[in-house]
């Protein structure tokens, strides 16, 4: 016998003067292999076509559908209803600006981050179309990809104590991004350059070590190790600065 699922969903449309933030319930009969992607689309198509939420790839790859699922930030597309109780509460991710209902603006937040950490390869070399590529050990490439896998879903930011208190905190996603370029031999920035970016409370020293970021990361990024690694590295840089080497 299929379960009857009760979805308690945050509703608010800032563009509708009559709308006020509230919770609304929808009931659906559970079907085989049901995910929150399937459930939310059914609610929209069958019950309330104004319901706002974000999905894109629906395969856990693009990071669009971060939301708070029964109290925990996660990707809705790969969350199966059979892993949840019959009472399901869905809230938009905190920290990010609300667009409406479950939809938030992660794009603006991350775009600002790219500028802050200058998330691109800094090199004086000019590309020569006639030359073969510069060599790189496969192991190095793999270790860069390991950190490049972040899908910027925002779950780690929404779960972060510091990010909830300081709007300028880079969060695990931001700090990990710095780590990705720091280990890339093509990037000519020095540790001092990276220190300028993350050697403050806005960066690595703002982390309180609660590490919910690691717990909620849907891609299982090694965020705890990254935070530890960069904290040590930046700590040493700070000492060097203090003692003038």
């Amino acid at each position: 016998m299929a379960r009857s699922l009760k979805f308690n969903i945050f509703r608010y449309n800032p563009q509708d003067s009559e709308s006020t933030p509230h919770m609304e319930s929808f009931v659906l009969e559970e079907t085989d292999s049901m995910t929150l992607f399937i459930a939310l689309n059914r609610i929209r198509e069958e019950q309330d076509p104004s319901l706002q939420f974000d999905f894109c790839c629906r395969a856990g790859i693009c990071g669009s559908c971060g939301m708070v699922i029964n109290g925990r930030p996660g990707l809705a597309c790969h969350t199966k209803t059979k892993d949840l109780p019959a009472d399901i509460t869905l809230l938009p991710l905190p920290v990010f600006q609300l667009v409406g209902d479950l939809s938030v603006d992660t794009g603006s937040w991350f775009r600002e981050l790219y500028d802050t950490v200058e998330s691109w390869i800094h090199t004086k070399k000019v590309f020569d179309p006639a030359a073969p590529e510069e060599r790189m050990e496969d192991e190095v490439a793999e270790s860069i990809y390991e950190l490049d896998r972040c899908i910027e879903c925002g779950c780690c930011i929404a779960a972060c104590g510091t990010a909830r208190m300081r709007p300028d905190f880079l969060g695990a996603a931001g700090i990990n991004k710095v780590g990705r370029f720091l280990i890339d031999p093509r990037d000519e920035r020095t540790e001092q350059d990276y220190y300028e970016i993350i050697g403050t409370d806005m960066g690595i020293f703002g982390c309180m070590g609660l590490l919910a970021c690691e717990d909620v990361c849907p891609k299982h990024m090694p965020l705890q190790n990254q935070l530890g690694f960069l904290r040590r590295k930046m700590g040493i840089t700070a000492l060097k600065n203090f003692f003038g080497k």
Binding site: E133, M136, R186, D187
Partner: peptide, 18 residues
């Protein structure tokens, strides 16, 4: 081929020959 090398220059961590 040129484009793949350009992407490598821009930062793509291509799998490499071992």
């Amino acid at each position: 081929p040129i484009e793949m090398r350009r992407l490598a220059h821009w930062g793509v961590p291509w799998g490499r020959v071992v």
